[in-house]
């Protein structure tokens, strides 16, 4: 595949590309920031990127949301309802997981009075040595 073809192929996937870039930003934040709250933000960003990707995969140009109007029940009128259901599931699970992550962060802060993951690790090591 030449470079021009590659770019042409990519230009047909603008929604997916933005989802992937958002995913990359989230992973970078997760790896680079030492602050636990920022890590949680990065985690939520990767979640959102995956939902954007799924929703983009379910979309069909020029069609309506899958709610039956005027009794028309044909495949050619509505978008794919399956990714919508999957994204709904994912959003609920991500709410639950980020709540648990934030609660763990609060407990860490109460114990060590810092949000820096490196400081927390060294303090925990010192505690173990004692």
């Amino acid at each position: 595949m030449t470079g021009v073809h590659f770019l042409e192929d990519l230009s047909a996937h603008l929604a997916e590309i933005s989802a992937i870039i958002l995913f990359g930003i989230g992973i970078t934040l997760l790896m680079l920031s030492r602050n636990m709250i920022k890590k949680n933000i990065g985690f939520s960003m990767t979640d959102s990127a995956i939902y954007l990707f799924l929703a983009a995969k379910g979309y069909i140009s020029g069609r309506k949301a899958p709610i039956v109007v005027d009794g028309i029940e044909q495949m050619a009128y509505y978008i794919n309802p399956i990714p919508a259901g999957l994204v709904l599931t994912g959003i609920v699970v991500s709410v639950a997981s980020s709540a648990v992550l934030l609660a763990l962060t609060v407990r860490l802060y109460r114990q060590y009075h810092t949000l820096d993951i490196d400081e927390i690790t060294s303090l925990a090591q010192k505690e173990e040595e004692v």
Partner: peptide, 14 residues
């Protein structure tokens, strides 16, 4: 991921 996306079927195609 971008390389993989380029081979996906086009966006919004029925």
């Amino acid at each position: 991921l971008l390389r993989a996306t380029a081979t996906l079927p086009p966006f919004g195609n029925p």
